[in-house]
């Protein structure tokens, strides 16, 4: 298990309490999981992705990550439409373990950009992990 000092944080990203990260200007946003999340989950063996074009509200489950240990649900950090999914994860789900910030899971077009304001800054996320 990584010590908190070993967990990688990316300063410019926004985070959620479900250990996801969000990046983007506002037109579209990419969503992935944090280094802390991938370390806790262990080897990811399958990623269940939504259909492009599907719409979800903030907090809706949009997919699942299958680790060796268990199935974990993925929740959309802001509501919107799925405009792209990272197909590379279909053949190589382990990419998320190898580089959780380089391998996004879905790209969304947010329906209400004000929801972005509720996301956590890197400092707030770090604080959350400190407990």
């Amino acid at each position: 298990m990584k010590e908190l000092s070993e967990v990688i944080f990316v300063e410019e990203l926004k985070y959620t309490e479900d250990h996801e990260w969000v990046t983007g200007s506002g037109a579209t946003l990419k969503v992935g999981i944090s280094d802390y999340a991938q370390d806790q989950l262990g080897d990811i063996v399958f990623v269940e992705l939504p259909e492009v074009g599907a719409t979800f509200a903030k907090g809706d489950q949009f997919g699942t990550l299958e680790s060796v240990k268990a199935v974990s649900e993925l929740y959309l950090p802001v509501g919107g439409e799925i405009v792209a999914v990272n197909d590379a994860l279909g053949d190589a789900p382990e990419l998320i373990n190898q580089d959780p910030y380089g391998n996004w899971i879905v790209e969304i077009k947010p329906s209400d950009t004000s929801e972005l304001e509720q996301l956590l800054s890197v400092d707030a996320y770090r604080q959350l992990l400190r407990g």
Binding site: M1, D39, Q40, G42, D43, V45, V68, K69, E94, N97
Partner: peptide, 25 residues
């Protein structure tokens, strides 16, 4: 060794090491 530890039968045991459970299996 940086193992991910968890409780099993009231013992704090390694779930997997840094190599990951897939490589271990």
């Amino acid at each position: 060794q940086g193992a991910n530890m968890a409780l099993f039968g009231n013992y704090d045991m390694p779930l997997w090491y840094k190599t990951g459970a897939k490589a271990e299996h």
